[in-house]
Design a protein around this nucleic acid. Structure first.
Lengths: 227, 227
DNA sequence: AAGATAGTGCACTGGTCGGTGCAATACATG
DNA sequence: CATGTATTGCACCGACCAGTGCACTATCTT
């Protein structure tokens, strides 16, 4: 791997916003936003290779040249977008598990956690992002690794920690909390994540079905790990 | 390397073989076998799009023209190969679960099943095939569906049936045997399948680790579904 | 040996696609 | 308004790639 960091080589776009600081050119802002939205849609739908820069330009109603002026090249555009979504996913991951170890009613807390987790993860954009990253894991291994660590990895780490605490307290029997976290995740999410990979166009389970899937998974988990 | 015999699995020209039947031209046989092996290697490694017909020809030490003469076009070559492997996988799937419902020692039988299943599925060719099909599920949805139904679907169906019987007999508490089958599968295979998708170049777990993963999954399953 | 059949080598077509060059223009800002 | 800069449109390059045409050679079959 050559380049260590693939980001901010173009307009940094942030602005410490000094008192008299002139913000970035509004034209650039609008162009970048349009490109980002169009590219996101197309990449998520058709993958990296099968999305042409001309298509992105057309959908964004922007000239192809502007894409190159703003993002350098197709790879940079892709990685910038994906890294953005990855960090969003990472933030969510952090929040998901907070408070679990302190819950008064553990079974209920776990059921709620499971439902929330599955509902979040089973949204089309999330599933598509996950699928996209898998599709491109060969071409962009660093992206895949980053995503894996930030999203499912972070949830897993948080769950592991919580289960370790709960085990110590006797609220759960999870001598191998890491394994318990894996089991929890796959029990709750497994089938939904999996079938989407093979049939990305198929209908998703309804919210009711999702809750049922989550509940069944959590119930099995509690039965196994002592609730 | 342990070269899996990729050859002669689809007999597109296998005549009924009469007593004095003239077999197919040996030149054709050797060409098709070489192409099949080379194409399999490359497709599994780099996917459909990123594998060039010229590369296949080069690796197979065969002229590009011969590929087209024998397989028509790239898509046909691809689907023919993948369908072949899919049917192989389907046969395995059938065999895996047989006898489970009649096992004297159910926990032990399940542990063995889990280990065998994971060991089989965690082989590089199998993981790569699975990944390949996911990668191309957008371009070849019918292939993906066929694979999903033949391989994991068949295992799932067989497990469901077995669990239903075991539940009726009181050896297991699985009022929703289908769900139990899903839980079993994801508990045993989940993490291995999943991490390969994101890091197809990473090392696989050692056989010892695989057995450990399977055992832990089965143990959790038994704890949940009453062993 | 002779004819049929399959494979070969290679040049070539046609299409796609990432990326560039440039002159004209729209727009932000002081 | 004047000046700098971002955007546009469009032609264009070069690389890549699936698939073809054809004359020639190698191999099988009788």
């Amino acid at each position: 791997m050559g380049d260590s960091d693939v980001s901010d080589r173009h307009p940094p776009l942030r602005a410490p916003l000094g008192p008299r600081d002139r913000g970035p050119d509004p034209r650039t802002l609008r162009t970048r936003a349009a490109v980002a939205e169009a590219a996101t849609t197309l990449f998520l739908q058709r993958g990296y290779q099968d999305t042409g820069v001309d298509e992105i330009a057309a959908l964004a109603k922007v000239s192809k040249r502007s894409i190159y002026n703003n993002y350098g090249d197709k790879e940079s555009l892709f990685t910038e977008l994906v890294l953005g979504f990855t960090s969003t996913a990472g933030e969510f991951a952090d929040r998901l598990v907070t408070g679990l170890a302190e819950a008064a009613d553990l079974p209920q807390a776990l059921h709620e956690l499971g439902r929330r987790h599955l509902r979040t993860v089973a949204r089309p954009e999330v599933l598509r992002l996950r699928r996209l990253i898998i599709l491109e894991a060969g071409r962009f291994p660093a992206l895949a690794e980053e995503y894996y660590r930030s999203a499912p990895g972070r949830v897993m780490a948080a769950l592991t920690e919580a289960f370790a605490l709960l085990h110590a307290r006797g609220a759960l029997t999870a001598p191998n909390p890491r394994r318990a976290a894996e089991h929890f995740s796959y029990l709750v999410l497994g089938s939904t994540l999996d079938s989407f990979l093979f049939a990305p166009e198929a209908d998703l389970p309804t919210p009711t079905e999702l809750d049922r899937l989550a509940d069944d998974g959590v119930t099995a988990f509690l039965a196994a790990y002592g609730g």
